[in-house]
Design a binder for these strands. Sequence first.
DNA 1: ATGATATCAGAACAAATGTTCGTTGTCAAG
DNA 2: CTTGACAACGAACATTTGTTCTGATATCAT
Lengths: 234, 234
Amino acid sequence: MARKRAGLSPRHQKILTFLQAYTQEKGYPPSIREIGNQTQISSTSVVNYYLNQLEEMGYISRGSNVSRGINLLRTASGNIIQQVKHAVEQISDLVTIPLVGNIVAGEPMPIPGSDFSYYDPDSGIDIARSLLPAGDKPEDLYALKVHGDSMIDAMVNDGDIVIMKKVNTACNGEMVAVWLNDREETTLKYFYLENGRVRLQPANPSMQPIYINDPRVVEVQGKVVMVIRQISHN
Amino acid sequence: MARKRAGLSPRHQKILTFLQAYTQEKGYPPSIREIGNQTQISSTSVVNYYLNQLEEMGYISRGSNVSRGINLLRTASGNIIQQVKHAVEQISDLVTIPLVGNIVAGEPMPIPGSDFSYYDPDSGIDIARSLLPAGDKPEDLYALKVHGDSMIDAMVNDGDIVIMKKVNTACNGEMVAVWLNDREETTLKYFYLENGRVRLQPANPSMQPIYINDPRVVEVQGKVVMVIRQISHN
DNA sequence: ATGATATCAGAACAAATGTTCGTTGTCAAG
DNA sequence: CTTGACAACGAACATTTGTTCTGATATCAT
């Protein structure tokens, strides 16, 4: 019972490969006889035979009584959609940012290591590069989900997603995530270093800033690049 | 000497547009007769006539005596980038949402008409479909930029971008943009209809809700689907 | 008005092309 | 051994489809 394997026979693969190459080069699909010539199949009916199988297997779709009516859906090497999508992420402006954890006021926030290329693909945030700051490398970005209402003075709500950039130091005017040693909490504030002391300014202009005289107490965890709020509607 | 213009006649454009749409959908090019049917050209010779012209102009290439042997090289709009971008939006999960204007507390907000398919491509927001609510059609979405600090009680800051959905009525718990007749201002609030009166709840839990006894005074302009805050860093 | 060029229609034709049918060979299962 | 499914071949057939030809209409410069 070696027959009728689930996989593709050499002829199936040959046909798919030729189909891809021909369509790529010419811009339109080959005819049955052209397929036969290139795959050493002498009879058009045999080519038709295999094409019907490939259609049943979902590799192609065909138009009835249509010349060259073959639409290549997947390639022999797997799913072409996956390939294209990956290429799209490389070429176009789609970036996947790993969602590495939660940010809670009362706990230190997670910071991914230098090699967090391996992450759960399910917990990624897809963002168009056009929305990101021009200079930022996507590799330095990660996402956190905000838990709790403690960051409302930073105009950040429970459930919001903040896109962070890994940095060690902050520049004036940047929004940073800082760990305040004395209060033992994580907070999001605009950072200003003025006359040797640090001013942490809430995003909400009606709130008062925090002044910290010793800059060493301020541990900059990362820079906030973007805040995304998805409003769920049931 | 108005003849023989360099540009494309309406029929040229029609053919190219159909060529693109058909190939996109079916995966293989149309036949001459299919082109004729869709472009109101009754004679195959006329279609052939125009196809030859398009080939000379470099828009397509053709195979001799080849059924459906048309290879679309460029589209009517100029270059192939448009094609690729459209394909990317189809294949991947990238959606372009038009940025139609600003939302200011003191002024009525702009709402695009039912046919705002034509918009400035430069002012579009690219968003991964995975970030949008599953059921929403991208055609019903538009984006507004927030001007001023007047929506801080909705946790929305100056410069934020809100993604709106065109709706006429709101359901309880949804965040909506409403025009308050008595105050003459636009605001973003969570909407609740309770016992015949409307409760508009700020997103900031420390703020008090607004109660409106006559629901007719509340004009729902749209539903807020997402809020995006890009923090600029210099 | 007139001629040249462009555009269009319809038909006929030939080539390309998909479909179907009968037949044969192979091989595992009964 | 027989049977049946699978794979393959070749031929005939029907349809699709590109090509060509004749003629008509339209537009515009002269």
